[in-house]
Design a protein around this nucleic acid. Sequence first.
DNA 1: ACTAGCTTGTGAAGAAATTCACAAGCTCCC
DNA 2: GGGAGCTTGTGAATTTCTTCACAAGCTAGT
Lengths: 208, 208
Amino acid sequence: MKRIAESTVRRLSIYLGFLEKAEQRGVLTTSSDDLAKLGGTTSAQVRKDLSFFGSFGKRGLGYSVPELSSHIREILGLGRSWNVCIVGAGKIGSALAQYAGFADRGFIVTGVYDSDRARVGSRLAGLTVRDTTSLEADVAAGEYEIVVLTVPPGNAQDVVDLVVGAGAKAILSFAPTQLTVPADVELRTVNMAMELEALTFALTNRDR
Amino acid sequence: MKRIAESTVRRLSIYLGFLEKAEQRGVLTTSSDDLAKLGGTTSAQVRKDLSFFGSFGKRGLGYSVPELSSHIREILGLGRSWNVCIVGAGKIGSALAQYAGFADRGFIVTGVYDSDRARVGSRLAGLTVRDTTSLEADVAAGEYEIVVLTVPPGNAQDVVDLVVGAGAKAILSFAPTQLTVPADVELRTVNMAMELEALTFALTNRDR
DNA sequence: ACTAGCTTGTGAAGAAATTCACAAGCTCCC
DNA sequence: GGGAGCTTGTGAATTTCTTCACAAGCTAGT
C-alpha cells in the first residue's frame, strides 16, 4: 500500500469529528462537499483522501454518515480501545489525566507516573500516581500502547529512552524539546511555544 | 516576498531551540549539517529554509550561533514581547497560565478569563480571573495580541466570534473542534485527540 | 425505460516542497 | 600568494501533495 501523507491522516480526524456530530444530530447522509466546507478544504481533496482506503460513497447520493464514520474510525485504528499512561503528574499531566475528551475516542488512561516522591501515592482521576521507577517494568509488561510525556524538557529524552527500551512503540510528548527515537517508534510532539511562534511569525510577516 | 511554507516556520522554531541551547553552552559556531542532524532533516533543507530570509552564514565556516539565533528570533517575530490572554480557567487553562515556558520566548500572560462565576475573582499565576463579559472590551482596547482558548468545544466558536469581532488577529485554540475565522485572522488549533489518532493510525497501519 | 440531475472516484495536470549537485567564497597553512 | 579543504547559497531536478475535470453510476420523476 502507498504511503499515506500525514496531512491526509489529520484531515481524516477532522472528517470524523464532523461525522460524529452529524451522527448525533441524526443526519443520515453527507457529501464530499459538505465535509470539505466544514473542514476548510475542497471536495476533491476529501474524495482523494478517502480513495486511498477504499470507496465508501454512492455516486449521485454521497456518503452514509454512520457507514463512513465507522470506516474512518477503523482506518484510524479507533475500532478498539487503547491504554495510555501519563508520565509526569505536574500541571499539564494532571489536566490531561482528567481530560474527558480522550475516553470519547477510546483512549483510556490507566496509569500515571511521577518521579517526585511528594506526588507518588496521591490520587488523580481515579488512579494512584506511581513511581517512575516502576514505569519500565509496566511498559515491558505491555500495560500501555501509548505513552504520553508531560515531564520537564531536561528529563524527556531519558524517559523516552527508558520506555523505548521497554518496548513502547508510540509516544506523545508535550515537552518543549526535540526528541529522538528509533525508526520503528512513533513519536509526536506538541510544543506550545512553537504554535505561538507560528502565530507571531504570521503577525510579523502578515503583508509580504 | 514569496509565501513561506508552514513547515519552514516549524523548522525555524526547531533550529532556534538548538541555537539557544548551543548559546547557553557557549558554542560559537554551527553548520547546516549540525542543525539538520539535530532537527531530523537535511542540511540542504536547513540552508533552503534560511535562504528565504537572507544569507546568514559564511562559506567554509558555517553560522555564528548568536547571530543566526538572533536572526531567527527576528524572523519569527520574537524580537519583542507579546501579551497573551487565556480564556477558560479550567484544568488546561490553569496549567497554561502557570507554564513558565511561555515567558522564555517573550509570551506574557496578562489576563485570564472565565465565564463561571465560581472561578471569577480567584487568583491564578499572579492574576485575578476576570469575567468573560469584559473580554470583548479588553481585546478591543488592544490589551492582547494573542488569545489562547481553553474553553469547552461547545463555547469555542462563540468566543472566537467575540474576540474576532473585537479585533483579535491571532488565536491559539485547545478546543477539540474545528473553528472558522476570517482570512485576516491567524488561527491554530492543538487537538490532543487528533495527535493520538495519528499515533493509532501509524500503529494500526504500521507495515503496509 | 428513459432522461435529468446529482455526486463519486480517479487519472492527469498543476503546484508546492524537498533534495541534488555544484559554483562561489571563506580560512588556514605552506 | 596560491592551493587544499571546508561549507554556504541556490538554480535545477525530483518527489510529494493538491486541484482539475470528467466518465461512471446512482436516484427520482415521468
